[in-house]
Design a protein around this nucleic acid. Structure first.
Lengths: 152, 152
DNA sequence: GTTTCATGTAACTTTATATGTTACATGATG
DNA sequence: CATCATGTAACATATAAAGTTACATGAAAC
């Protein structure tokens, strides 16, 4: 399977939006991410349904942040995407009649469950505000380096 | 991407083999797993290279276990498959120039890394012998239930 | 030694899923 | 009413697993 980069993508969009006031058209956002406007609308649809962002049609329309970034975690964003599969691996068959398969599944399921739970927990620890702050730090660091270069 | 069931599949094969002396032809194993002999050979190739199983050509040939099941973990088997991707999600781009992307990646990488490490650790805790013992327990329980049904 | 059996492997097909694209309907603004 | 922007369906492309076919290689049986 191709690996899923929707979470990565939608976070990229949200962080861009958090850097300056909107609204932003799908086309603008698509250019910043080097992709297609429809892809933007697609990954943003779930966030709109949950009220994290708003979208307006017509002149001056586009996407706007509509939530407190310090109250939305990466896990919330993940859920807004529809909670796609986290692990690349899966059991051959779920609920098999074969006892061999049952024994294998029991062992793997335990490991899979733990890993998924940890991943979700980690995503739940990071808010969009924390990400945005980190980004500002990185932007500041770059500016500082530029200044240092001019005045060594 | 389609989700990867090779680990599940190869464990199924190994457990079948542990239940009775071999050798087993790819065709026999394929029938037990409702798949194709070539698929069996494919997923077994890595295990053969690492010496976990042996394969013989010609009459009376086939696959044989060639390791101490109590010393091979599910993690070892996973590595024998070539260590395929564990997570279904990934960053849009690795090592991006864009600072936004860097901030997103930094946050996700941390979560991804922790989840992968835990999954590998869990797989490393389970040996093939443990799986095989569990299977025997299940087989015993079924037999016991059958007897109970006859003599309630 | 020839036949039969089994693996080894390349090449191709199929399937599932994410991503990219086109087309057009819907609604808001000027 | 013309323009802009989203909403969405439909279709195309890309990637990777799984399934299939074909054939070469080597071992055992006869």
């Amino acid at each position: 399977m191709k690996r899923d980069s929707r979470l990565s993508g939608v976070l990229h969009v949200l962080l861009h939006m958090a850097q300056q006031p909107g609204p932003f058209t799908s086309e603008t956002l698509a250019k910043a991410m080097d992709t297609n406007p429809v892809v933007i609308r697609r990954i943003m649809a779930g966030l709109r349904d949950l009220g994290y962002v708003r979208s307006e049609k017509g002149h001056g329309g586009g996407w706007t942040l509509a939530c407190d970034l310090s109250r939305v975690t990466l896990r919330d964003v993940y859920k807004a995407l529809g909670s796609p599969a986290l692990l690349a691996m899966a059991n051959r068959t779920e609920a098999p009649g074969c006892l061999v398969e049952q024994a294998v599944n029991a062992a793997l399921d335990q490991a899979f469950y733990d890993a998924e739970a940890l991943l979700l927990a980690r995503l739940g620890e990071v808010t969009l505000a924390m990400l945005s702050d980190d980004l500002r730090r990185r932007l500041g660091a770059r500016k500082h380096r530029a200044i240092s270069a001019h005045h060594p």
